[in-house]
Design a protein around this nucleic acid. Sequence first.
DNA 1: AATGAATGAGCCTTCATTCAT
DNA 2: AATGAATGAAGGCTCATTCAT
Lengths: 195, 195, 195, 195
Amino acid sequence: MPRLGAEPHRRKSLIDAAILTIGEQGSLDVSVRQIARRAGMSPALAFHYFGDKDEIVTQTMRHLLREFSAEVRLRLAQADTPHARLQAIVAASFAESQFHRTTIAAWLVFYLRAYSSKPAARLLHVYTRRLRSNLLAGLKPLMEPSRAEDTAEAVAALIDGLYVRHSLRNQGPDAGEAIALCNSLIDDRLRNKEA
Amino acid sequence: MPRLGAEPHRRKSLIDAAILTIGEQGSLDVSVRQIARRAGMSPALAFHYFGDKDEIVTQTMRHLLREFSAEVRLRLAQADTPHARLQAIVAASFAESQFHRTTIAAWLVFYLRAYSSKPAARLLHVYTRRLRSNLLAGLKPLMEPSRAEDTAEAVAALIDGLYVRHSLRNQGPDAGEAIALCNSLIDDRLRNKEA
Amino acid sequence: MPRLGAEPHRRKSLIDAAILTIGEQGSLDVSVRQIARRAGMSPALAFHYFGDKDEIVTQTMRHLLREFSAEVRLRLAQADTPHARLQAIVAASFAESQFHRTTIAAWLVFYLRAYSSKPAARLLHVYTRRLRSNLLAGLKPLMEPSRAEDTAEAVAALIDGLYVRHSLRNQGPDAGEAIALCNSLIDDRLRNKEA
Amino acid sequence: MPRLGAEPHRRKSLIDAAILTIGEQGSLDVSVRQIARRAGMSPALAFHYFGDKDEIVTQTMRHLLREFSAEVRLRLAQADTPHARLQAIVAASFAESQFHRTTIAAWLVFYLRAYSSKPAARLLHVYTRRLRSNLLAGLKPLMEPSRAEDTAEAVAALIDGLYVRHSLRNQGPDAGEAIALCNSLIDDRLRNKEA
DNA sequence: AATGAATGAGCCTTCATTCAT
DNA sequence: AATGAATGAAGGCTCATTCAT
C-alpha cells in the first residue's frame, strides 16, 4: 500500500521511534528491526530511507539538538533583560518537549556516543558551545567576566545533572523544582558577587 | 604455569579491563572477547570465572560503587564538622581515582544501564540514597530541613553534571575547579538562608 | 515525456548496460539496480520490460551470440574458397565488435553460467555447434575428415584461449596477433598433412 | 565434539568444499553457508578459521595455483631435454588433478575474479608469468626467439581454450586428446621453422 | 509509460556461550 | 586452571520483485 510522497512522514516516524526505542533501552544497542517495527514499517524501508543504521542514529541526534535549539530560540525571543534571558534558557531546558525520561535517556546515550564517534562529538560540541555562549550573554552584563564563566559552567553542569537524575527513575526533581534550583543558583551567584 | 590462588587476581584483571573497555567505548556494547584479551586471557576463562557477560558487567559496576564508597568513607572519617563533612563528600567525588574520563564514561554507562536492568537500577539506587543521606547529614545541622533537601539535590545534581561535562572530551572543568564550584554552591546556600 | 515506441530502445539500452556492467564486474553478481541506473531508468522499468533478472541476463547473452553470428555471416558471405572461409571465421572472432575486454568478460561469464543454468547451456551449445560446423565446412575440403575434426577443435580452443588471455588485463596478444596465431595454426595443419 | 588440533584439517575441508561448490555453480556467488555445510561444519566455524568470505576464496585460489605448480614441478624434474620439458608442462596441465570439470570451472571463476579484485589479479599474474617462462625455457633452444614467443603464446592460449571447452559440458576433448593437440601444435611449429 | 513505495528472503558476520581436553 | 573448538541466534544490509499511482 505505497502512498506517494511518503518519505518525510516515514523519516519522521523512524526518528520518533528511534528516540523512544533508544531512550527506553538506554542504549544504542537497539536493532533497526525494533525501531522499524515501532515505526510501523519493515527494516528494509528504514534502510531505504536512511542508508544505514548510523545515519538513523545521527539524524535522530540531530533532531533532538534541533528541537532543543528551537525551544531556546523561541523563549529567548521573548526575553528582554539579561536576567530574563537566563531564565529563558533554563526554562527551555526543562520544557515539556525536553524533560521526558525517555528523551533524556536518548540525550545521555548521545553524550556517550561522542566517545567513540567523531561526528557525534562534533554535533555535541556545537550544542555545548552554543549553550555556553547563550549563558554568558546573559551573565556577562551582571557580573565580572571570570565569575560569569564559572557561573555558566555551574549552570550548565547543574542542568545536565538534573537531567541525569531526573531520568534516573524519576528520582530527581520534576521540571518546576529543577527550574527553581537553577534559578536559585543563578540568583545566589548574583547576590554574593564578592564571593 | 598456573599459580594457586590466581582466581582473585584474574577477576580483578577482568574488572579493570571491563572498566577500561566500557569506558573507552562509552558503551556496554563491547564483547567479552575484547575484555578478556585486554585482561590477557581467553574469553572462555572469563566465562569460567563470571558465568556470563551480565555478571561481568554487574560486578564491574559494583566495583565502581565500592571504590567510590571507600573514597567517601575515608574522607568522612577525618571530617569533624558538618561543613567539613560536606567538603569531604565533594572532594571524594572528584578524587583522582574517580575523576578520569574513562571511569566517568563507565559510570554513565551504568547509569543508563539502569534503564533496562532491574539489578543495575537497584545497585544505583543504593548509591544515590547513600549519597543523599550523607549530604543531608551535613546540611541538616546548618539549615532548615526543606532547604537542606533542596540543597542536597542541587549538590548531587551539580556533581553529576560536572562528571558528564568533564567526560565530554575534557570540556568541563578539572577536579580543582569542580570542587570549587560545588563548595561555592554550598556556601552560597548557607549564606542566603532566607532565599 | 515518454515517446511512443520507446520499448525497443529501452530494451536495447538495458542490454548494453548489462553487457558493460557484467563485463566490468566479471560476474553476474550485479544488481538490476546497477544495470538500470547505467541504462538511465528505474529498476522497476527494467522489470516491466523483462519480467525478471534472469530474463535480462538471458536476453543479454542471446544478444551477444547474435552479434557474433552476424559478424560471421557477414564475412562468410564474401569468402569464396574454403581457406578464405576459415580466415573469415577467425577474423570474425577477433573483429572489433567482439574483442573488447569487457565484452569478452561477459562472454566468459556466460560460459560459466552454463554450469548451473540449463537455458544458458542450451544457448551456448547452439553457438559451439555452429562454430564447429562452420570450421569443418572450411576444413573438410582440405584434409581428411578425422584430421579436420581435430583441427576444428584446436582452432576453436585456440580462439577461446586467446579470448581468455586477452581479457586478462590485455596480457594476451592484440587482435592482429591473435588472428595471425590462428591462421598460422591452420596453415601448419594444412602443410603437415601426414603428421 | 571439539578435537584438538583440528584447524589444518578444517581448513583443508573448507577449501575442498569451496572448490566443489564454486566449480559446480560456476560462480563465486555461493554462500559461506553452502561451503560450510558441504565441509560438514557451521558457517560460524568457517569464519572462525578464515576471518571472512574473501579470505576463503583467496585461499582457495591460492590452493589451486599451488597444486598446479606442484604438478608442473614434479614433471619438469623428470624431463631432461627441452622438448621433454614442453611435454611435461602440457602433461601437467591436463593431469588428473587439474582436468576436472569442476576444478576447471573454479579456475575460470578465478580468472574472472581478477577483473574486479586486485589481489586475485596479482595471484593470477604470477601464474601466467611462470607458465610463460617455463614454456619459453623449453622453446628458446629449439627456435628463434620471436617465434618462440609466439609459440609460447599459442600453446598457453590453446591450453586455456581446451580447458574452457572441456569444462563446457565435456564438450571438448578428453585429456589424452587435449595433450595430443597441444603437442601437435608444438611439433608443427618446430617443423615449419621458416613459416 | 514510468517510478517510488514497500517487503521477504537471504547473506555476511559477530557474539555469547558450551564443551572436551 | 585454561583454552581451542564449535554453534545457534541475532544483527546490519542488499536485492529481486511487486504494487499503486
